[in-house]
């Protein structure tokens, strides 16, 4: 122990360390715009494919692929700038992956249930409407999931959260 350091100073230093750890975790979270951008691309793809007019489905697929690559590139570039260490929140990866898998399964379930119901009811463009509904769930839920994941990682890492 260093007798020249006041306990309050040590506590402030520990708080600062916790804050910096939290900062690294928060900046690695998938940003809110990612969810909405992915949602827009997916809805556009659904509409293009469902229209079935000429080359529109292929244009939709190309647009979706290019857009997804750009979005993923931007997110991963930001993450590479200062990626959190794997051992920052020990044992958290299985839980985060399970949470993400459950969320994607729920979005898929919403899309299928809505699409099949609309098709059975004879509503036009059931795939596009179902996609729009599911993507609203995806975008809103994805941001909530990220907030939960981030808070969980901060707690697990011993940060201030």
């Amino acid at each position: 122990m260093n007798d020249q350091i006041e306990p309050a100073d040590a506590a402030r230093a520990l708080s600062e360390i916790g804050w910096r750890r939290e900062q690294v975790i928060r900046r690695a979270a998938i940003p809110g715009w990612y969810w909405w951008a992915t949602a827009v691309l997916t809805i556009a793809l659904s509409a293009a494919v469902e229209s079935g007019r000429g080359a529109l489905p292929w244009i939709g697929i190309a647009f979706f692929t290019a857009g997804s690559l750009v979005i993923s590139g931007l997110v991963s570039r930001a993450l590479r700038g200062a990626a959190p260490r794997r051992d920052l929140a020990p044992g958290s990866v299985p839980r985060l992956l399970a949470g993400m898998a459950a969320f994607l399964a729920a979005v898929l379930g919403v899309a299928l249930a809505t699409g099949l119901s609309l098709k059975a009811a004879g509503v036009p463009y059931p795939g596009t409407i179902a996609s729009a509904v599911a993507m609203v769930v995806f975008a809103a839920g994805g941001q909530m999931l990220m907030r939960y994941h981030t808070a969980f990682l901060v707690r697990r890492s011993g940060g201030r959260g």
């Binding site: 230093a13 600062e16 910096r20 200062a82 990626a83 260490r85 890492s157």
Partner: peptide
Amino acid sequence: LSLVAFLAATGWADFAVLRDS
């Protein structure tokens, strides 16, 4: 302390990210 604490939570960190953070 701020700088080392940030670096301790990451692997390689970009200069610009460190500067801004």
